[in-house]
């Protein structure tokens, strides 16, 4: 059985009164293997981000199921699903969404804030991921004291601190220039080479070409790349 199984997932957003409901995904099925680097491509409005948040256990599909490592994600109760996100998933957002009032180390530590691990252990873990993304010497800096590429790497460090089996990224290079975008992609490739599964939404064909597989989505349907 594949590490991630997306089975006949549809998503319809209920519109405001007087407007028609919008179906963003329709009967989408796909599989991802552990350690695989998969990019999700498609034009704007094709449902890429919606599929990513559904896989990310944040957006309940209207129909269909998603299972990760054999766990039916949406069969979990709400608070358990939060625990699942913390234990299984790491998120990297397009705008990074670092907390501006926390320094790099504290931002990296954020997912561990609710963990009962000893403080020193949490700190060691955060420093280790900062080192992994090349930011160990900038641990005390606030996000606004970091360059765009460094902020991207810090967002990756935060996503990795819990050692999740799956990294989800929503256009992580979308807001970066090509040089810093490449810098961030190199970090993803290194992580993947170390066995990290990555599911990334991108518009950038150059970045998609670096992935193991590309799933192409159009008008809520997978055009190609649904399985290995």
């Amino acid at each position: 059985m594949s590490f991630i199984v997306i089975e006949a997932v549809s998503k319809t957003y209920q519109a405001a009164a007087g407007e028609a409901a919008v179906t963003v995904l329709e009967e989408v099925s796909a599989e991802l293997e552990a350690s695989e680097f998969v990019c999700l491509m498609g034009p704007s409005g094709s449902g890429k981000s919606t599929l990513l948040t559904i896989v990310g256990a944040m957006n309940r599909p209207t129909t269909g199921t998603v299972s990760v490592d054999g766990i039916d994600v949406y069969a979990l109760a709400d608070e358990r699903r939060a625990d699942f996100r913390r234990e299984y998933l790491g998120f990297v957002f397009q705008q990074h969404h670092l907390l501006p009032y926390l320094n790099a180390l504290e931002n990296a530590l954020l997912p561990l804030a609710v963990s009962s691990r000893p403080t020193t252990q949490k700190r060691e873990r955060a420093l280790s991921v900062l080192e992994r993304v090349g930011l160990a010497d900038k641990a005390k800096r606030l996000p606004n004291q970091l360059s765009g590429g460094e902020q991207g790497r810090l967002a990756i460090a935060r996503a990795l601190v819990n050692e999740p089996p799956l990294l989800l990224a929503d256009e992580p290079t979308g807001a970066l220039d090509s040089k810093t975008g490449r810098e961030v992609m190199e970090v993803f490739l290194t992580l993947n080479a170390q066995g990290q599964a990555i599911f990334m939404v991108t518009h950038n064909a150059e970045n998609a070409a670096l992935a193991d597989r590309v799933i192409h989505l159009q008008d809520g349907h997978i055009v190609y790349g649904a399985s290995v």
Partner: peptide, 16 residues
């Protein structure tokens, strides 16, 4: 809202 969304996305429970 965004900050709370980020915290929820990275695994904070409602109670947290």
């Amino acid at each position: 809202t965004k900050e709370i969304g980020v915290l929820r996305a990275i695994g904070f429970r409602k109670s947290h």
